[in-house]
Amino acid sequence: MKQTTIRNLHRDLGYFYIGLIISFAFSGILMNHRESWHPEKYTIETKAIEVKLPSKEAINETFADSLGKALGIDDKMRRHKVDEDKFKISFEKHDVEIDLNSGKGEIVSYIKTPVISQMMKLHKSTSNWWIYYGDIFGLSLITIAVTGAVMIPAGKFNFKRRGWKLALAGIIFPLMFLFLFG
């Protein structure tokens, strides 16, 4: 392939995907820190509650949904969870957490963070067309990386003399991280 063709392919794919690369990078950074805070949504109200709960065994999806309605929550229930001492219900716009022993808890009402929640949805989407588009995007990123590596002409900073060492280090680092901490 001619040097100008490689440069043109690298440039045009880079221009075409610049928005998606920035969106994925930004939302990926936010998702890395979702245990500390929830970038997709922000709290608009927190309300203390106290309810009488049945035994752990009697808490099921039907109970969780009806409790939500009794608490005045009218949006769709996503899931519920009972662990050792907490009962949690997640709705589209509310989260409920109740202590199983005392019945005390809170309702957290939130709204989606504009733009950020939509960008993060890109990472989570499972629709067929988006999966195929993501595959094409992934192949294009590989193409951008390879064309970027080979488009520097001969000299002391080209891929053959210096770039392969950095590329190898870039491959080894995440593999070490996976093996050591994964």
Rank of each mutant, 00 (worst) to 15 (best):
K56D: 13
M1R: 10
Q118V: 05
G138R: 01
T4Y: 14
S55N: 14
H10G: 03
T147W: 03
H38N: 15
E50S: 14
R11T: 11
F177H: 12
E106A: 14
I171Y: 05
K47E: 14
F157Q: 12
T143M: 04
Y133Q: 04
Q3G: 02
I98D: 08
E50G: 03
I116M: 09
S102R: 03
K160I: 13
Q118E: 08
T62E: 13
H123V: 03
F137C: 03
M176S: 13
T43L: 09
F181S: 07
S125C: 04
L20I: 13
G138E: 01
V82R: 09
D135P: 01
G155T: 05
E50Q: 14
G72M: 02
K56T: 11
R78Q: 10
H123K: 04
G68R: 12
S90E: 09
K69V: 13
E92V: 08
L178W: 11
L178T: 08
A64T: 05
I73V: 09
R79N: 09
V146Q: 02
G105N: 08
K47V: 12
V96Q: 06
N128K: 11
F16D: 00
I59G: 06
V96D: 06
L53P: 02
D75F: 00
P153F: 04
H33N: 13
L122V: 10
T4S: 15
A58K: 15
V115P: 00
E45L: 07
L175V: 14
R34F: 13
F157M: 11
M77E: 04
L67N: 08
T126G: 07
I107P: 00
D135Q: 06
A64Q: 04
E50P: 00
M120I: 10
G68Q: 11
